[in-house]
């Protein structure tokens, strides 16, 4: 057993040395400097952090219960005051007299939850399969990538519609369907990066001192292929949020009792001809700000982590 202990130390040394080469000076200092120079990503991070806070602390922060109806006070415009002169509806009320601002705040929960979870599901599944394909090569590689080709060969949203019609609405179903929809992207990148890393000297040296397959993949190859995967994940959360909004708009998202931005937009259609603009404007702005922030952040991360792609 003493043998394996010394092996793992060597392995760690390989791994640490590699990290030091890649990431010195400390990565966070470089990141902070690059952020300060770029400006827009800072705003994006602020917006995303505020959204996350709103989503987590929706209960104390929302001015009203998002599902409380008040038919007498329906379709009130933004900045409507109550009898005491206090603010009753900051962003107006909808066709059932529910508070639009509170529904927006609660809606952030679903968008963020589904966006992040689906990307986690797809990212882990795809990276796992991609690394296996790239590392094993041969027939395993062929089969995995052939399945990926099939999935890429037809518009996934259609299959998502089909599956959700059968399974019914629900957060878990949505996360699974959207997550499985993403795996190909990660698999392709993870495979390509693994093949590139596999040929490097430090992998050879780790292998030559007897490091096993699992350890080689997890400790030696994985840390070096994570950067592009993180970049893709950021863009991916954005596109999943857009897909979730579309599916919610079609009534295929979560049950209608849970407020979502896409669902709010679907409801706003019934009030469109009446000119109740606030029902349509605010949820859309919320989606756009979130997605825009994620895209800006993704752009910056790509430039920061992979300078070869700068300006593309």
């Amino acid at each position: 057993m003493a043998n394996s202990a010394s092996l793992s130390t060597t392995d760690d040394a390989v791994y640490v040395t590699d990290r030091e080469i890649r990431l010195s000076p400390p990565w966070w200092r470089k990141a902070a400097r690059s952020l300060a120079a770029a400006k827009w990503p800072i705003l994006a991070i602020v917006i995303l952090l505020s959204l996350m806070l709103l989503a987590v602390f929706a209960e104390p922060l929302a001015p009203a219960d998002p599902n409380r109806q008040n038919l007498i006070r329906r379709l009130q415009p933004p900045l409507t005051q109550n009898e005491d002169g206090g603010m009753e509806y900051w962003l107006g009320s909808d066709g059932l007299g529910r508070d639009v601002l509170s529904r927006l705040i609660y809606g952030a929960r679903i968008s963020i939850l589904v966006g992040v979870m689906a990307v986690v599901v797809g990212g882990i599944l795809g990276t796992f399969l991609g690394v296996i394909a790239g590392y094993a090569g041969g027939r395993t590689d062929d089969i995995i990538m052939r399945i990926a080709d099939i999935q890429l060969a037809f518009p996934f949203i259609l299959l998502a519609i089909m599956v959700l019609v059968v399974l019914g609405a629900g957060v878990l179903n949505l996360v699974l369907v959207l997550g499985v929809g993403q795996w190909v992207t990660y698999a392709r990148i993870a495979r390509g990066e693994t093949i590139a890393q596999k040929q490097k000297d430090f992998v050879d040296s780790a292998r030559s001192i007897g490091v096993g397959h699992r350890r080689l993949v997890l400790r030696t190859i994985m840390p070096n292929i994570l950067a592009p995967i993180i970049v893709i994940a950021s863009f991916n959360v954005a596109s999943v949020i857009l897909s979730e909004a579309s599916l919610s708009f079609l009534g295929l998202g979560v049950p209608p009792t849970i407020p979502t931005w896409g669902g709010m937009l679907a409801e706003s259609r019934d009030q469109l001809l009446g000119g109740y603009w606030w029902l349509a404007v605010f949820p859309g702005v919320a989606i756009m700000l979130t997605v825009l922030s994620l895209n800006i952040l993704g752009d910056w991360m790509r430039d920061f982590l992979d300078p070869r792609l700068r300006g593309r």
Binding site: S246, S268, R269, I287
Partner: peptide, 11 residues
């Protein structure tokens, strides 16, 4: 690329 298309339609 950041706008939900159906929202653009509604606008």
């Amino acid at each position: 690329q950041s706008m939900p298309s159906f929202w653009l339609g509604i606008m």
